[in-house]
């Protein structure tokens, strides 16, 4: 009798066409392609989800309210845990790939992003129950959260693409990642997840650096590490230019 070989666990592997996005004076955003392959000898039905997260940035958001006929901003609310860039791409709509709990735990999909407003929360005892998290925004909390996502999506910074991962060959898949010009500078992480039967069975993480280079970087560092000298230099250029122009025009 033949000995049954132990089942080979399915795995996913992937690579980015670029691991460094260089922000130069002519930076117009970037398009990065992610290629990957699924290894599964038993050919069970597989789904692939790619989640790209940019560096975390706290978000301040305000609500417009009408006071005495004027539209003014309410007190701003700070949301924490929000990535500066977020894209979830998948082979099928996420809710068909896995259940709510799994998606929530992985932070897969814009609805499952772990963003919250800690300053608005406090823990108290209510009706004799200890440690109840109460949010000061109350029932409006979801509106605020949705607004964060909506405004970020409008800037091209948050995106969910139900068919963003495409199988180009039997086991070979591909996903496009488009970074807008406003994409934050910093380290990005692409998480590639292989799903079978509604569960993540294998994952890979790839990193991507978005950084300023050349003159952009020099000026940025100058402005932040020698701010006073930078200020004096920039104003001297201005005054010199004004003086030069008036001299030039006097001669002509």
């Amino acid at each position: 009798m033949m000995v049954q070989p132990p089942p080979v666990p399915p795995t996913v592997s992937a690579a980015l066409t670029t691991t460094e996005v260089r922000v130069t004076s002519g930076f117009q955003g970037a398009r990065i392609v992610l290629y990957g392959a699924v290894f599964d000898p038993s050919h069970r039905p597989s789904d692939v989800v790619v989640i790209v997260r940019g560096p975390e940035q706290p978000i301040r958001i305000a609500h417009k309210v009408r006071v005495a006929g004027l539209w003014i901003n309410s007190r701003p609310v700070v949301f924490r845990g929000a990535p500066g860039f977020y894209k979830a791409a998948s082979t099928r709509p996420l809710d068909q790939i896995a259940g709510f709990g799994v998606l929530r735990r992985l932070g897969a999909g814009i609805d499952h992003l772990a963003i919250n407003a800690p300053a608005e929360q406090r823990v108290e005892t209510r009706y004799g129950v200890k440690d109840v998290v109460v949010n000061r925004l109350g029932a409006d909390y979801l509106d605020w959260r949705q607004a964060v996502v909506r405004l970020k999506a409008k800037m091209g910074l948050y995106e969910e693409d139900d068919h963003g991962v495409v199988f180009v060959d039997q086991n070979l898949f591909k996903a496009d990642i488009t970074l807008p010009t406003d994409a934050p500078i910093g380290r990005y992480q692409a998480q590639i997840l292989l799903f079978q039967n509604g569960q993540p069975v294998s994952q890979r993480v790839r990193e991507l650096d978005v950084k300023k280079v050349g003159l952009q970087r020099t000026l940025y560092l100058f402005a932040h590490f020698h701010p006073w000298t930078y200020g004096l230099v920039s104003v001297s250029i201005a005054l010199a230019a004004g003086w030069a122009a008036s001299v030039a025009f006097r001669r002509s």
Binding site: I61, H63, G69
Partner: peptide, 14 residues
């Protein structure tokens, strides 16, 4: 003018 017109987007990112 912006103070008097009803905003199309009720939230604003800062």
């Amino acid at each position: 003018l912006g103070l008097f017109l009803t905003p199309t987007e009720p939230f604003i990112l800062m």
